[in-house]
Design a protein around this nucleic acid. Structure first.
Length: 421
RNA sequence: GUGGCCGUAGCUCAGUUGGCAGAGCACAAGGUUGUGGUCCUUGGGGUCGCGGGUUCGAGCCCCGUCGGUCACCCCA
């Protein structure tokens, strides 16, 4: 039989790693609760139309990176490439934003799918912790989302991160800036990279964050987005910065920061971290005041972020602070002979019912082998029984840390163990 | 979609001008007839990614292919 592998860019999260995932997810849930965001779980599969209307036809993510297929009913379906569009769809569909003045603060943890070539920090299935806040257009809401995201990193122990901020303004400001850029770049179009020459008409803003040296050179003296901002967008962005400063948050305004979704308006931000390789963004977000209306809801402002779990774990690993969930001590039962093994199998279940983590060998291995397993599994204590203990109605309690052992009457063993837990 | 690098034991890797496929770790048994970690002995493990070609002979050379990885594009 030929071996079957996971699809390219899809990876297993193995027992050796799942503790780290649980730790990080635990922090996400805890910090979300503190900021009074509630969990929402939306489907992984959505109608393709949602992402075309939401994320945008011209964005690369929808244009060439979606897992899209036709289902048995001839409907075009797409594995979600990001979290926001589905959340907005769900909020509209379930009338969570139907009332005037409706507010909604939600978070999610789950997988996203993008058909790309894998590299360090990039997979075809990756996981994000994200949060979205609807109904508040004030800059305070942008800042609350940023603070939530940074607090998440802080509680995970992530150091060495930097927050970059930009504003492309509302729809009119964005269109104005786009025209300014086209006028700026057109006279020197031939000096741009091939990609950027194409972008000039289709996706002008993207020229700003190109890494190609020719583009870096060409955009010297390029007008900043701030110049194109409407007075309202300008004061919104100023206020966001002011509020962040009041919170003593370090940030840098980066006029070259552009993000991949078409729906962003006004504020957008990105957090980068050390140790991630070339793909160094650990999370990013922004405001999307037109998205709810675009997807058929009542006009409702929104702002939120998404943060990559894999990249966070990579960054934590690089800085050598590996999160781990505190684990309860393991009690490993050791049997000499089949009669003791039978008795221990019964006792093991009593330990578990008493809330103690217990395990034992079920394959009749030698006592020595059982001890080796207990050691490998990092058991805290061994409970040892043979014929003589059975006769005396005792069991030996041995600490694997100190090597000390003493007999304990079987009918008192559970209360003894609970006392030292 | 494009480019660089890498595929040999469960893991990390050696393998000389083409000449009997190896080491360390891990795993198993024993040293100790009822006691782990350290130590010693022994043992099981291989389609050298796959398919062709050159050759008396290929892990090694050539062609193709698949997979992995890093980078570009783009993004978490």
């Amino acid at each position: 039989m030929t071996k079957i592998n996971a699809p390219k860019g899809f990876v297993d999260i193995l027992p050796a790693d799942s503790g780290r995932w649980q730790a990080v997810e635990g922090v996400a849930r805890q910090v979300s609760r503190l900021y009074h965001f509630s969990e929402i779980r939306t489907p992984i599969l959505e109608c393709t139309e949602l992402f075309h209307r939401g994320v945008g036809e011209t964005s690369d993510i929808v244009h060439k990176e979606t897992f899209t297929f036709t289902d048995r009913g001839d409907e075009s379906m797409t594995m979600r490439p990001e979290g926001t569009a589905g959340v907005v769809r769900a909020a509209i569909e379930n009338n969570l934003l139907a009332q005037e003045g409706a507010r909604l603060k939600v978070y999610y943890i789950g997988p996203n799918f993008r058909y790309e070539r894998p590299q360090k920090g990039r997979l075809r299935q990756h996981h994000q912790f994200g949060a979205e806040a609807f109904g508040i257009a004030e800059p305070q809401q942008d800042v609350e989302c940023i603070l939530l995201q940074l607090d998440f990193y802080r509680r995970c122990g992530l150091k060495d991160l930097s927050l970059r901020l930009n504003s492309l303004g509302d729809g009119e400001s964005k269109a104005r800036y786009r025209r300014m850029l086209q006028e700026f770049f057109r006279p020197m179009a031939s000096k741009l990279s091939e990609d950027s020459q194409r972008r000039l008409e289709e996706n002008t803003l993207r020229i700003l964050d190109s890494k190609d040296p020719r583009d870096v050179e060409a955009r010297r003296g390029v007008p900043s987005a701030y110049e194109a901002l409407s007075p309202r967008s300008r004061s919104h962005f100023d206020r966001v910065q002011q509020l962040l400063s009041e919170q003593k948050v370090d940030f840098a305004v980066d006029g070259m920061l552009v993000r991949g979704f078409d729906y962003y308006t006004d504020t957008l931000w990105e957090v980068t971290a050390a140790g991630l390789g070339s793909q160094n963004a650990v999370g990013g977000g922004g405001r999307y005041d037109n998205l709810v209306e675009q997807l058929g809801g009542r006009p409702t402002p929104g702002v939120g972020f998404g943060s990559g779990i894999e990249r966070l774990l990579l960054a934590l690993e690089a800085q050598k602070s590996v999160p781990a969930e505190a684990s309860a001590p393991l009690f490993y039962l050791i049997s000499h002979g089949p009669a003791a093994a039978d008795a221990n199998f019964v006792l093991m279940q009593e330990l578990r019912h008493a809330g103690l983590v217990a395990d034992m060998d079920l394959s009749g291995r030698s006592v020595k082998a059982q001890f080796k397993i207990a050691d490998r599994e990092q058991a805290a204590f061994c409970l040892i029984r043979g014929d003589s203990e059975l006769a005396e109605k005792t069991i030996l309690l041995k600490s694997l840390a100190t090597g000390e052992q003493r007999p304990v009457p079987v009918d008192r063993i559970i209360s003894e163990l609970q006392a030292m837990r």
